[in-house]
Nucleic acid binder design. Sequence first.
RNA 1: GGGCCUCUAGCUCAAUUGGCAGAGCACCGGGCUUUUAACCCGUUGGUUGUGGGUUCGAGUCCCACGGGGCCCA
Length: 482
Amino acid sequence: MTANRLEKVEHLRAGGREPYPVGFQRADLAADVRSRHADLEPGAATGEQVTVAGRIMLHRSFGKLVFATIQDPTGRIQLMATRDELGDGVAEFEDLDVGDTIGAAGEVVTTRKGELSVKVSEFTLLAKGLRPLPEKWHGLTDIETRSRRRYLDLIVNEDSMRVARARARILSALRHEFEARGYVEVETPVLATQAGGALAKPFETHHNALGVDMYMRIATELPLKMLIVGGMDKVFELGRIFRNEGIDATHNPEFTMLESYEAFADYHSIAELTEEVIAAVAMAVLGETTVTYGGRDLDLAPPYRRARMVDLLAERIGIEVWPPPDGLASIAAEHGVEVNSAWSDGKIIEAMFEELVEPTIWDPVFVLDHPVDVSPLARRHRDDDGLTERFELFIAGSEYANAYSELNDPIDQRARFTSQAAARAAGDEEAHMVDEAFLRALEYGMPPTGGLGIGVDRLVMLLTDQHHIRDVILFPTMRPED
RNA sequence: GGGCCUCUAGCUCAAUUGGCAGAGCACCGGGCUUUUAACCCGUUGGUUGUGGGUUCGAGUCCCACGGGGCCCA
C-alpha cells in the first residue's frame, strides 16, 4: 500500500507537481465556517469564498462528483469537487487518498441533502500520506499502538485530543492561580549530585566533563526551600519529576508535579490555598466544580473535610492508635495489613491507613498530622512531638497533594536526615540521603514556611475522567518496540 | 519481581476436534453528479510477535524469548 502511495508521489513529481509544497495560507477553520453558516437550507449558495485546509478523513467518489471530509484542529468540514467547477481537475481530486493533507478554496454551500460544504474551485495537495490511516469505523483501539503512535491516536480518537487540550488548559490554569496569588515561577535543576526532597529511587546518570555521578530529581522541594531562605517568599515550580519505579495505572517514571512554597504560611493556610486552586482549575477547565469520575459524581467545591490520619484510622478499625498502643503490629496483622518487624509505629500507622482507609475515600479529604518518622521534611506538630504538621489530600481513593508546615529547624532536620541515613544503611533504598548543602541553607535561617506538592497528572486524570496515567501523558514511558 | 490473559493483512476482527489462513474497511482497476462509515462489480495484500518442539499435518498443542494488558508485590 505504501508502494502505491510512493508511485503516486513519483507520478506527481514527474508531472511537475510537488507533493510536499510550502507556502499555502489557510484562511478559514472548519468550526468558524460552521458557526457562520449554522442553519442553511439544503441546496443553498452563500457566495462566501473560504480557504480551508486539513487532513482527508473520508473520501467518496461518484466519478464526476467527489466528496471529501477534511479535519482541522477545530473540527471537520466536507469538500465537494464537481466536474462543473473543476473540469478535468476532478479526476485529480478523486485520486487523493484518505490521510492526505490538502488545502482548498471555494464557495460555502450546502448540498441537496443539506450538508455544509466547500464547493472546491481550487485545491492543493499539501502533504501526501504514504501510510493508510486506521480504519474509519473502528478507528485505533489497540492501547499499545495508541500510546506508541500518539499522533495517530490524536488524528482518529477525538477523546485523546480532548484530553491533550484539557491538560494544556489545566497547566495554564494552575500557573494562573499561583501567579494571581503573587507566586513566582522558578526553574531548579533536573540534574543534581544528590536526589532529595522525597522518598524514592532516582535515575542515575553521569556527567563526563565533571567526572561525577548525577541523579535526575525526584522532587523540587529542597532547591525551592533554598529560594525561600534567599528571600523569594512565594515560589512555585511546575515541572517534570523522575522516579525509578514501576509503571501502573497511576505511576509513570516521569511525571509532572507542581510544588509551591510560601514564607509565613503553615499547613492550615496551604490547605485553604489547595482547595481554592483545585476548585478554580476545575472551573477553568470544566466550568463547574462537579466532576464525574468513573460514572460517579464528585464535588470539588471547598471547603474539604479535614481529619487526622490517626483519627480516620481509629474510626475505621474501632481502636485508638495514637499514642501508639502496645502491640500495634499485631493489630495491623489482625486487619490483614502486612508489616515488617523493623517498622516504626508511625510507618505501621501509615501502612494501615493506606490499606484500610485510602480506598474508602471518595469526596475530598485533607488527611492531617502524619507520624514524624514517615515525614522527614515536615515540621513537628505544635501540639504533639510525635506527629507532623502535614496533610495529604485524598480524592476518590488517590492522593492528589502533599503539604507541610516545613521543617525549618536545622538541628531537627539534621537529626531526621541522620535517622533516614540509618534506614538507608539498613537497606531502605528510598530513605532520604543527608543533604549538607540543604542543611547549610537552613542554618542561615528559613522563615516558617508552608509548602505544597500537587500531582498534576492525577489532577488531569480526575478532570478528564481518565483512569490510567498513560492516557493523560502524550508519550508515556514504554519498552522499546524491538 | 510473581500470576493470569493477549499478539492473525495498514486498521478492526474471524478461522469448528489439530485439517486449504478469511471478512469488512483501506489500497488497486471498473461503474456512478448529492454522498455522510456512500453504494455496486472485480483484484491485490500474510514469515499468524520471534525461535524451537510434538505431529502425516500447528494460527490452534508444548517450551523459551519479546511486546502489550489486568491483578498482586
